[in-house]
């Protein structure tokens, strides 16, 4: 069982996408004016779409220490402040969404083994719905998915810290969709990473899922 801290910006509906289950136990940390959470009890820090990156910048050093202790981070949002070690998200609107295509590049842990990448590229036949901008990835980090212009869209980083980070260029991920669906690409990708965190943290045996 992965012990996760979910950062909540008090946005309507957010908690419905992260419900504790056989793989993960969530504790919700609601951001306040005095935001300063204790990260040490957790294996995983989840920073979902719609997060407060002013607040996250305030705990930048804490996040770094958490990762250096071998822990994990998922950030599926546009972190415009520089709180994520080694990597920076940048918004960009210079490319047409109609031209956006995603390509799998380095997927050493099989995060996309059962995921149809086209589900992230297209929705209702139109491309460019999922991510925004791109990631300036750390040297040596895995670019899992890149876009038409070879810009990193999903990054797996095990080199910037002693821990592991899964970062998306603001492409939302969820543990369950609003309708309760777990067969969605953005859910399967998220849960495949949770399994990797499970292995890494040795919280429970690999095949206990």
């Amino acid at each position: 069982m992965v012990n996760a801290l979910l950062i909540s910006n008090n946005i309507a509906g957010l908690d419905e996408y992260y419900v504790s289950n056989e793989l993960v136990q969530y504790t919700v940390c609601r951001i306040t004016k005095d935001f300063d959470p204790d990260l040490t009890p957790y294996d995983l820090l989840v920073v979902p779409n719609g997060s407060d990156h002013v607040a996250m910048l305030k705990i930048k050093d804490k996040v770094r220490a958490f990762l250096d202790a071998g822990k994990a981070l998922i950030c599926s949002d546009g972190w415009f402040t520089d709180w994520v070690p080694g990597n920076q998200w940048v918004m960009d609107n210079s490319k047409r969404t109609i031209d956006i295509r995603y390509h799998l590049k380095t997927d050493r842990y099989g995060l996309f083994s059962d995921v149809d990448l086209n589900e992230l590229t297209f929705s209702h036949g139109m491309s460019g719905w999922w991510a925004c901008g791109y990631i300036r990835a750390a040297d040596g980090a895995d670019v899992v998915v890149e876009d038409t212009w070879q810009r990193p869209i999903i990054v797996l980083d095990e080199v910037s810290t002693n821990g592991i980070m899964l970062l998306t260029a603001s492409g939302p991920l969820a543990d369950v969709t609003f309708s309760g669906d777990r067969e969605d690409a953005l859910v399967k990708l998220y849960r495949n990473f949770l399994r990797r965190v499970q292995v890494k943290s040795r919280a429970i045996p690999v095949n206990a899922d």
């Binding site: 910006n9 946005i11 951001i31 997060s51 407060d52 990156h53 002013v54 996250m56 998200w89 918004m91």
Partner: peptide, 26 residues
């Protein structure tokens, strides 16, 4: 402003940044 990136992207765009002032909700 709630620390959310879309608010930030719009308000800091060259076209709007001289008109809009980001006020962190706290």
């Amino acid at each position: 402003f709630n620390g959310v990136w879309s608010h930030y992207a719009m308000a800091t765009a060259p076209k709007y940044r001289d008109i809009y002032k980001l006020i962190y909700v706290y």
